[in-house]
Amino acid sequence: MMETLLLMFLLTHASGTQAIHTVSKICVQKQQTITVPCLYDQKYANYPKYMSRGGVRIFSGYVSHSRMSIVDNQAENVFTATLRAAEVSDSGTYWCAVTMSGYDPHAYLYLDVTEAEARLRVSSQTVSGYEGGNVTILCHGASHWCTIRGACVGRDGRSLERTAVSDDGGDVLRVTLWQLQKEDSGWYYCSNENSQMPVRVTVTEALNITQFTTNPSYSTTPLGEDRQFRWLLLLGAMLPFTVCGAVMLIKARHKRRECRDSVCAVLHVCVSAEQSGSAESSNLHEGMEKKQQLPKGTGKNSEVMCENLYEIMTGIKQNTRGNWKNNEVACEDLYETMTGFKQNNQLTATDKQKTYASIVRKVKK
């Protein structure tokens, strides 16, 4: 009976290793996360994949606890099993397998979880590079760098295309992949005489980085471009408000200048009337009509009185101080109100011009 079981194991194991490829032994420290790649033939792409655990394949059971997850990448014909927060009790034999009718193609590996730091290790199981560029992997405690299907390069002088290895001090193996190509993407591993450590290399198309460097006006990184775009968007949003504010400011200045010129014109009429010695309301009306185009009245009240002029200038009704008969306000009283000085009819023409200039300056302020 035992011989029959052993024969069945050997037969299923042999057939499985022809279709599924993985590493044979992984050593990892407790509480670390480890990812195991399982490569399969294209003909198994559409079948379910799983990981089982047990010393004998036919007696192994599915690994279904929450710390183990399976991801199938059918584009690259590989599925990965990731174990998080590994425990010493997780040590044992595991099987990469594909569900088929009759028998399941499979490949085995041994996982060794230790309390101490593993002798063979890498800083990260994933590295990335761009077409035409280089990537470097530091393998601690390793002697070789290999592909999953077996081609290796190491300190023993064997070579691998566009791959170079060198000692980086101590037992560190420095691996450099240069002039990367898209087909270089895939799973590799660092190895020593006892175990292997899988490493995933991803090569990205060069267009993803050169599109930011061909035009010097753009940042060399997507982050820099995004930051510049946000600044341009903000400035674009602020531009209408800036233009509107400038237009409103110009209109306000223009309106203020028109108002100032209007006041100066009215003052000029009044002062000119005083300097000529004529405070007749009819003459004042005529001067204002020329300077300000103010509407005339009709009939007896068609005169523009200095009382009305004062109200135009100040917005305040002038107390009547003039002739009681026609109820007019003398321009000299308006002059006194505006300047604080009594009108001196004996002033020379030059002095009166200076007085007028003083009034204009006050109005402009």
Rank of each mutant, 00 (worst) to 15 (best):
V329P: 00
V201W: 02
F79I: 03
N208S: 15
V172M: 03
L267W: 05
K352S: 13
R227A: 12
C96W: 01
P240C: 01
T202D: 13
Y40F: 15
V36W: 00
N327M: 02
G299W: 12
L83K: 01
T350F: 04
A116P: 01
Q211F: 03
M1L: 09
S124P: 03
L111N: 03
T22W: 00
G297R: 07
S191W: 02
I137H: 07
R57C: 04
V269F: 09
D167F: 13
T4C: 10
P295T: 12
S191D: 09
G315I: 00
E332I: 10
T4A: 13
L309T: 11
M288Q: 00
S91N: 07
T202G: 05
G102I: 13
G16D: 07
Q179T: 14
G315C: 02
K182N: 11
T204C: 04
C264S: 11
K296V: 06
T80P: 00
Y40W: 05
T314Y: 07
M8F: 11
A97L: 08
T22A: 05
H21G: 07
Y47D: 14
E289N: 10
Y108P: 08
M238Q: 06
R158L: 07
E117Q: 07
W145P: 00
N283T: 06
Q275K: 13
K49Y: 01
L180G: 12
H140W: 09
E76R: 08
K342T: 15
G299S: 06
T126D: 03
R200V: 03
E193K: 05
W187D: 11
M8C: 11
I312V: 06
Q74A: 04
V122A: 02
M238F: 10
M288K: 02
L249S: 13
S24T: 15
S219Y: 04
N327A: 05
A81H: 00
M248I: 06
N326E: 15
R121D: 01
Q125H: 00
G61K: 14
C190S: 06
D171W: 01
K325T: 01
G299D: 04
N77H: 02
R174M: 06
V271F: 15
L160R: 13
E311P: 05
R57F: 08
S89M: 10
G54M: 12
T210N: 13
R260Y: 15
M1Q: 04
Y110N: 12
D333W: 14
K255P: 01
K365C: 11
W324K: 14
P48K: 11
V165F: 05
T214S: 09
C96L: 03
C244H: 00
L11Q: 10
C270Y: 04
G322C: 00
V203I: 10
Q293E: 08
Q292C: 15
S278Q: 13
Y50N: 03
L6S: 15
L180Y: 08
N208K: 10
L309R: 05
A206D: 15
T126A: 12
E161C: 02
D333V: 11
A164H: 03
E307L: 14
L294A: 10
P48M: 06
N319K: 02
K255S: 08
L294I: 14
Q228K: 12
I58A: 15
L309W: 02
I250M: 03
A142I: 12
S281I: 08
K354Q: 14
Y103C: 02
T298R: 12
M313Q: 03
C27N: 05
